[in-house]
Each structure stands twice: as structure tokens, then as C-alpha cells.
Design a protein around this nucleic acid. Structure first.
Lengths: 339, 339
DNA sequence: ATCTCAATCGAAAACGTTTTCGGAAAATCG
DNA sequence: CGATTTTCCGAAAACGTTTTCGATTGAGAT
């Protein structure tokens, strides 16, 4: 491995000058600068990033913690983050919490130990206290939360307006003529499922439809099977439901599958709207009307905020927390139909 | 940030002793060791990884380059890699080549500059020359290729036996009574699509079925739409095809969708087998019979090999390249049926 | 010739750790 | 009690870079 020292010896000059020549310092003559650059190129010099890190106290590396990698939405986010980070010369270390609070804590420790320049995190469903998050902030490591955030924690955030998105979806069901609309909701944590439920409820009352709690089903693991199960349950409990807004696409697909099996026609007898716009939603039959959750963009925006904070920290500027709320749109497909 | 020096001053001993106490060196008394550990814990000391990296010349970080993150198979691989790496105390920097040779080259440069301890790579489809890969090897950076590999390159590899897997899939179609079996194949690069095609062909000849080139369709972008397009084309070109082995699940799902639209019954009129076992394959209707490609396991194995190489390099052992071939199995679902 | 100023360079410290090696103190032995 | 070994500790070098600050040189001005 060739070092500054070797280049210096090769040319009979000092390490200092070599370093400066390579970094456009003004106090080195054009002649030596050229010379240094040429020999550096010739010897295929690459700065030792370990030494640079130590000296500059930054590694141009950030940490990312997500609940689950194998997931269309989150992998889109990762892609967005990595693409944006690359533009600014940052690399991304990815860890996953597996939806576990304990693991999440451990991963944060790991990243702090590694002294990453910043941390991006989307919380695990199980996370209810935020001491580990506070540690990041006390450590003065720039932090941005996205998607599954904690409202209480003071830091920059990137989210969608879950409530508004759910409202729009429910409103659409009403607009196309649905009279009795059910909702499959997610667990009481994270915040997202609460907000989506509230959006659903708000849309009903705004349209003078009486909110009927028996039409709301609380799901746990949000799986395909659960979608099937509760679709079946719904059919047992009610006969006149003509629309259903479902917390996430996978469950919606399970429900549609069950409706198909039971001979219930989608969308003729029941309209279905999902949430997230997984790729899958576009290729099943009938294809799924759903709320598009812009994962890639969320990733980009999250990194942009983090980058700002990193810059600010370097300049010792006062901290200003930003909050970006991304627009969602309803992707209309075959699982809904105007009456 | 608390350093060894601060602990040393706190206790009135030398930095050396503090360092040794924390690392179980035998030449420090139990008493001082206890003392040091306690104050280190009290001050919440965390070793400066930048300094450690510089001193030990390793960062406990590896690089990972994949063609595309938002992809069920590859995200499974990532998950496998990260989980295994974590067990051994390694972190993973993920980059994506976006199926571009140029980007792939750039990412490799980046990782080498960062001085990662090793590199895991799955090649872009477009990659045809391997100078950039050779550079990694010349750099003496441990390297393991997985899935989309280059046979020519001398390094450790983790793959599945594409040919055998395709053979098994085709054989299954024959076993359940198919007489005329089509194949949607991938482009001429990467190797995988060639091998899958060869497996298909071999199975036919081994069963005394004449290979008919007109039954093989060469696809480009392997998309859902292409699946629909060629399914339609197949229907135009042939009337008596009763089975089809398709290079990848997404295309298979597109084909099934088109068959549904045209009123062709799957599996009654035509049996369909895909490849990869994307999650999607299990939730569409009819669910897809497919070759299970063990992404998570591939990730784990790839890291295990890399870890071995890193260890060997540290011990200056002679290099031994390993090759792991993972078993695949056929997941039988609704898109195939015994006649 | 002296002085000023700009241009160019290099010595040295610093970042925080690991590890070698030698020395002092304590323990063991004859 | 002296000699020898063991136990424990610390000085110092090294990893490779960045950056401050002072030194040197030569040109130009007077």
C-alpha cells in the first residue's frame, strides 16, 4: 500500500507538501503539484481512509436501521437512501431490528461504537420507550427517523400523512358508492396504524356515515393468512359490506384471495383498497387499488435531512429539526369500481 | 468522547496499562484490571474505532455489491449476509450496481478506497469483462462471488446448480404428463439463464422428447409485461403446448395473467413452473409452482466463505478457493397438476 | 545594500489506539 | 540474605493523515 511518505521520498520532498499538493492547498507551486499528482497517479495512491477518519473525526459513513429488509417498501427506502448518499460521497451500513426492541437497541449501540456520521432509523413495531434513541441524540450523532417514527422524540423526520392518505382512500370508496365500509387495521403500535384508522373514521363522519366499531378488525401480524382469516370473519359477521379499506397490501391480497375462494366478486360485490403499493399489488388479479407509499423518495429525503444535520453539526450551527411530509396518491386499479 | 488517556489520568496509571486491562492482557494485575474496567464502564468508554482501524489495519466492515436491492431474492441474500456478518462482529456496506458494468466498477473502487476487509459481489447482467474484479484480487482483498458469478474468475463462490434445478423443474413437467414443453429463457448473460436453458434441454433429450427451438423464447428485460407478451405470442405460435418452464417468477406471473385473460386454464390446459420462489408466487391465484432459490442461505454461506478468507489472510495462510453449491427444491403449488 | 512581501516549503503535533520491550518491584528459592 | 524468577507496569514507536505555524527563498522596491 502506497502512502504519502512513499510519494514524498520518491520526489525528495516532504509529506506535508505531498498532502497539500493533493488537496489543492494554495501554498504549493503548480510545478510540484503537477509532479505530485502524476507520481500519485502512477503509484496508484489511495489515501488510507482509516488515517483520514482518525484525523478528521468522520468516516463518511452513516448507519441505517430498519425493521425488515425483505419487504418491498423498506427495500425501496434503502435504495433511495443509498442512491442519495452516494451522490454526497457517503456509504451506508445497514442493520435490521427484526421488529425487536432489544435488537434495535443493540444495533444502535453498534453504530455509535462504529462512530458513524449519522443514523437513519425506522422503529420496530415493538418499540415503546425511546431511551436508546435519546442516547443517539445525547451523543450528538445526527439522527433522522422515517416512516415508523416516535412523535415524542425531538429530531428530524420524514413521514407520509397516514391519516390523510387513509382519509383519501376511504373517501374514494364513498365516492364510488360504497355504503358500508369495513377497515382492517394494524396493531396499536406503531403510530401508523392508529393514524390510518383515524383517517378512515374521519372520512366516515365527514360524510355523515355512522361509525360502526364492529366493522373494524384489529390485526396482529398483518400477514396474508390473517387477511384471509378476517375476510372470512367479515363475511360471517356482516352481509352488506360493500367496501373495505385495509391497512396493508399483503393483508388486502389475502382478503381478495379469500373472497375469490368464497365466490365473492371483487370489485362487483366488495371493493378493496390496500395500502403501500407493493409491487405485488400490480400483478395480482384483480390488481389492487392502493395508496402509493413513496419509499424511494422517502429514502432520498431522509438522507437529505441527515446530510443537512451533519453539515450543521460540522459548522456548529444551532440545530433545527425538520419534518418532511411526503404526498401519497391513490393508485386506482381493478379492485375498486364506480357503481 | 472519553479516551484511554482520560481513564489513565483518572486512575493515575499509564495508557498502556489501561489498554491492556481492557483487552485481557495477562500482564496486568486483577486489581487494576477491575479498577480500569469499572471506571471505563462508569465513564461509558467506547474505543475509538477510527484509531483501532488505523492501528490494526482492519475495519470489521465488508462491502456488498448487488445488481438491484428492490428484489425479493436479493433482499433475502442481503438479510442472510447481514445476519451472519453480525454474528462475527462485521458490518455490511451495501452498494448496488443497477445492472450496470460502469457503476459496478465504480462501486468496487469505492469499497477498495474505503479499505473494507472483504467484498461480496453478484455481477450485473451487463458485466462481460472482469478486470475490475481482478483488481480486487490483486489488491489482496478477500472476495466471494454469489449467484451471478463469472466462471473464469478465480475466487470463492456460492451458487445454486441452475442447470440441475431447471432439469428437475422440466422433469417434473414431464412426470405429470406434459408432452410439449415450452421455455421462456433469459438473455445470453448472465450465465444463469444459459444454465437454466441447458437444464431444460437436457431433461427433454433424456426423456426422448425432441428439442424444438421454436418452443424457446428469448426474453430481454424479464418483466411482467414481457411475460404477458410472450404468453400471447406462444398461444399464436403453438396450439398444443401443455407445459412451460419460465426463467423467473415475475415473467411466469405475467404469463399466467395473460393466460387467464385469454381464457386459457392454468394448470388444466397449460402447466406453469417459475424460478426463484418470490414471495409473490405464493399469494397469486393460482399460486405458482416454482424452483426455490435459497436467498437467505446463500447470503449466509457467502459471508461464511468470506470470513474464512479474511481469517486466512490474517494468518498468511495459502489461499484456497471454495465453492458452495446450494440445493434447490421444487415448490409445488397450484399452477401445475398431475394429469 | 537593505527592507518588504509574497511564494513556497517542511517540522512537528495531533488524532487514539496497539504492542514491543525493558525495567522495577515483588515473590520464590537455595 | 542474595540470587533468580515472576509479576506488573510504562515509555515509546507505530499506524497515515491533516493542519498549524514558522522558516526560507527570491523578487521587487527604495
Amino acid at each position: 500500500m502506497v502512502t504519502l511518505k512513499q510519494i514524498a521520498e520518491e520526489l525528495g520532498i516532504s509529506i506535508t507538501t505531498v498532502s497539500k499538493a493533493l488537496k489543492e492547498y494554495p501554498d504549493v507551486s503548480k510545478k510540484t503539484r503537477k509532479l505530485v499528482r502524476e507520481t500519485a497517479a502512477m503509484l496508484n495512491y489511495k489515501p488510507n481512509s482509516f488515517a483520514v477518519n482518525l484525523r478528521t473525526k468522520e468516516s463518511k459513513t452513516i448507519g441505517l436501521i430498519i425493521p425488515e429488509i425483505v419487504h418491498h417498501f423498506f427495500s425501496s427506502v434503502i435504495k433511495g437512501i443509498i442512491s442519495q448518499a452516494e451522490k454526497k460521497g457517503y456509504l451506508v451500513i445497514t442493520l435490521q431490528s427484526n421488529e425487536s426492541y432489544e435488537l434495535e437497541k443493540k444495533q444502535i449501540d453498534l453504530l455509535i461504537s462504529k462512530r458513524v456520521d449519522g443514523i437513519l432509523i425506522s422503529l420496530a413495531n415493538g418499540t415503546a420507550d425511546y431511551k436508546h434513541i435519546s442516547e443517539i441524540i445525547e451523543h450528538e450523532t445526527p439522527l433522522v427517523m422515517f416512516d415508523k417514527i416516535a412523535k415524542v422524540v425531538k429530531c428530524s423526520k420524514v413521514i407520509i400523512d397516514d391519516r390523510k392518505a387513509a382519509y383519501k382512500a376511504t373517501q374514494y370508496l364513498i365516492d364510488i358508492g360504497c355504503k358500508r365500509i369495513a377497515h382492517f387495521r394494524g396493531p396499536l403500535l406503531p403510530q401508523n396504524s392508529i393514524d390510518r384508522f383515524l383517517g378512515y373514521k374521519q372520512a366516515l363522519t365527514d360524510n355523515n356515515i355512522v361509525y360502526d366499531p364492529s366493522l373494524v378488525y384489529l390485526l396482529n401480524d398483518m400477514s396474508f393468512e390473517e387477511g384471509k382469516f378476517y375476510a372470512n370473519q367479515l363475511l360471517k359477521d356482516h352481509t352488506n359490506v360493500d367496501g373495505i379499506f385495509i391497512n396493508t397490501d399483503l393483508v388486502a391480497i389475502g382478503a381478495i384471495s379469500e373472497f375469490n375462494n368464497k365466490g365473492i366478486k371483487v370489485p362487483e360485490q366488495i371493493n378493496v383498497i390496500g395500502f403501500s403499493n407493493w409491487f405485488m399489488a400490480s400483478v395480482i388479479s384483480p390488481s389492487l387499488t392502493t395508496v402509493n407509499q413513496p419509499g424511494f423518495k422517502m429514502g432520498k429525503e431522509a438522507f437529505k435531512l441527515l446530510y443537512k444535520e451533519i453539515k450543521n453539526k460540522k459548522k456548529n450551527k444551532n440545530i433545527r429539526y425538520n419534518k418532511v411530509v411526503l404526498e401519497t396518491d391513490l393508485v386506482i386499479r381493478e379492485s375498486t369500481k364506480i357503481k
